[in-house]
């Protein structure tokens, strides 16, 4: 039943996105051209990747506020490494970014797992620590285009099978997360931990360890996004992605991921990110000042939460009564 509700939600969200595109296309037909929609997807690939990582954490009744700061730190380290040693191949740098991100995520995870500190407190603290560390390693300086190697900048701009490589990163992440959530015991453990931690323990799931791994994943994803962000906008600074953690959570919430844990799908998170993407892309087209974006995504979050609450009012215990009745 939960699954069908989630699917229904995804259909509604997809319809809302289609409606939005159609609405803009009435006056500006070029907006609905595949090439334009593809570029919207490409522009929001990083948000999609981040939202998937956040979803995994939120499913376990946790939250990761440190993702954007993690992204800034990893991006800075990777960019500085590239500036200092331009000969290091880019795939190796990407692996390095994911490893650094995962290490930072593991730090969050250990505090949540071993010390039982609420995730919101832990990541609130590490959010400021990671961003401060970005400043310390860089000395407040920027790394910009002329210090990055050509390969570093051009890799994600290349085209492969008709799509930019950046989009392929997002597609690969979507497939990987989909397989993980639906085809592995770990995916089930993530849902179980969120739905009922006590029952999960009786079912043999190590709840603490599951949360720890979820934080490692969100960290790893942030690290990857760190490289992608820095090479896409060709700048690494302390201010990179400042405040972006809220966009990531917004994408999840709009995508129907329940902040109370246990409910959420890969499709939902992706659609949530795309919804924000379409709004962001449509505003300049219909000639609305970009200053409206913040208020509109705020309203979208509130609206999404109200709709989520309607959908979630399910009786987990009703099964017993039914059993008694029959």
């Amino acid at each position: 039943m939960i699954r069908s509700l989630a699917r229904q939600r995804e259909i509604w969200l997809a319809a809302a996105i289609a409606l939005l595109i159609g609405f803009v296309a009435i006056r500006f037909p070029a907006f609905a051209r595949p090439a334009n929609l593809m570029s919207v997807f490409n522009d929001y690939s990083i948000l999609i990747i981040l939202a998937l990582g956040q979803m995994v954490v939120i499913l376990t009744r946790s939250i990761d506020l440190s993702m954007a700061a993690n992204l800034a730190f990893t991006g800075m380290v990777v960019a500085m490494t590239n500036a200092a040693f331009p000969t290091i191949p880019i795939p190796l740098l990407i692996v390095m970014a994911m490893a650094i991100g995962a290490t930072l995520g593991a730090f969050n995870g250990v505090l949540v797992w071993k010390l039982g500190i609420p995730p919101i407190v832990v990541t609130l603290g590490t959010l400021t620590v990671f961003r401060g560390m970005t400043f310390v390693v860089s000395g407040g300086a920027w790394v910009n285009a002329d210090r990055m190697s050509a390969a570093f900048i051009s890799l994600q701009r290349g085209w492969f099978l008709g799509l930019p490589v950046l989009s392929w990163f997002a597609i690969a992440a979507i497939i990987a997360f989909y397989l993980m959530m639906t085809r592995t015991p770990f995916g089930r453990a993530l849902y179980a931990t969120g739905v009922n931690p006590t029952a999960s323990v009786y079912a043999g799931i190590d709840v603490g360890r599951t949360k720890f791994l979820a934080f490692c994943i969100s960290g790893m994803v942030s690290g990857l996004a760190g490289y992608l962000w820095v090479s896409r906008y060709v700048i690494a600074s302390t201010e990179v992605a400042n405040g972006y953690e809220l966009q990531i959570i917004a994408a999840c919430v709009i995508g129907g991921v329940s902040i109370a844990g246990g409910i959420g799908t890969v499709g939902g998170a992706v659609l949530g990110a795309l919804f924000l993407g379409v709004i962001g892309a449509a505003l300049p087209v219909i000639n609305v000042s970009p200053f409206w974006q913040l208020a509109i995504s705020g309203s979208a979050i509130i609206l999404a939460v109200i709709l989520n609450a309607r959908g979630e009012k399910r009786g987990g215990r009703i099964i017993l009564k039914k059993a008694e009745a029959t």
């Binding site: 809220l246 917004a250 109370a260 913040l294 208020a295 995504s297 979050i301 939460v305």
Partner: peptide
């Protein structure tokens, strides 16, 4: 509604109005 999400939303909304 859960206050943490509601206030993440109103946080964008209130500051968004200031930006508008």
């Amino acid at each position: 509604l859960p206050s943490i999400v509601v206030t993440i939303g109103t946080m964008s909304l209130f500051r968004g109005i200031a930006f508008i």
